[in-house]
């Protein structure tokens, strides 16, 4: 446990140093360039691109979580049960549309920039959160439901004190999966002029500069790993009651 925390902190520190002073790493990327190309992307600061990238992913994941969890709660209440098939279909459609197609379709309506990217990530990220929230809420055993009613909890108290806390680890796993998918998918937002780390990668591809491609991809990869392990640690914290069973 302690070791994994150290590794995570070390990775975070290394990424921080690279984003703050990319020029210190010139020697590392120079071998990937040809004919005296620049080794470090300088059109926009890598730090700004990273922060924008993270902000877009965070906003899309947050909006997706609110909608997907809200929907999952709604369709698991007696009054909303009949909407379950419809919600499943909607979430599945969101996942079926490739984000590139959503971008292409959204640009005429929303214009270029961040908005179509947010929409694509939001739609694409709904399904894992929704399905996990459903699974988490469904995993609460009939005895526990019965006990919660029997002790005199109201419907709201049962949801907040029993169902959601028990579903939380599973819900968090869904959010984690969604965030990781979005982390990679956000790079294509740069095709419609959203400011993400995809910009570096695209610049590299257009100019056949492998150093730029590597920089963008490495930063995105490092972010994905850091976010994944951090969210995983939070999940573990909330499911600690499941540990050391007899």
């Amino acid at each position: 446990m302690k070791m994994s925390v150290l590794i995570r902190l070390a990775a975070l520190a290394l990424l921080g140093v690279f984003l703050a002073r990319p020029d210190w790493f010139d020697w590392l990327f120079a071998p990937l360039t040809r004919n005296g190309q620049a080794a470090i992307y300088t059109q926009n600061s890598l730090l700004n691109l990273t922060l924008n990238h993270l902000a877009i992913v965070a906003a899309a994941t947050l909006a997706g979580s609110v909608v997907a969890i809200g929907l999952a709660i709604l369709v698991t209440r007696p009054a909303g049960r009949e909407f379950l098939p419809l919600s499943r279909t909607l979430a599945n459609v969101g996942q079926t549309f490739p984000p590139v197609a959503v971008l292409a379709l959204a640009v005429p309506v929303l214009g270029f920039g961040t908005a179509p990217t947010l929409l694509a990530l939001f739609l694409y990220g709904l399904l894992p959160i929704f399905e996990n929230a459903l699974a988490g809420l469904a995993s609460v055993s009939p005895e526990v439901h019965e006990a919660a009613r029997g002790t005199g909890m109201t419907d709201g108290q049962r949801l907040l004190r029993v169902e959601l806390p028990l579903a939380l680890p599973t819900i968090l796993a869904g959010i984690r999966i969604s965030a990781i998918i979005s982390m990679g998918t956000a790079t294509i937002g740069s095709t419609v002029a959203a400011s993400t780390l995809g910009e570096t990668i695209m610049a590299g591809l257009i100019n056949t500069n492998l150093a730029f491609v590597a920089q963008g991809a490495l930063v995105v990869g490092a972010l994905a790993i850091i976010v994944n392990t951090s969210l995983f640690a939070i999940e573990r914290h909330f499911s600690r009651y499941r540990q050391d069973q007899r």
Partner: peptide
């Protein structure tokens, strides 16, 4: 109903304890 149940103890088979508490 919920107020009534708070005045009446209720124990079931398989105990129904809240696993997260």
């Amino acid at each position: 109903a919920h107020e009534l149940r708070r005045q009446i103890g209720y124990a079931i088979q398989g105990h129904g304890l809240f696993p997260h508490r």
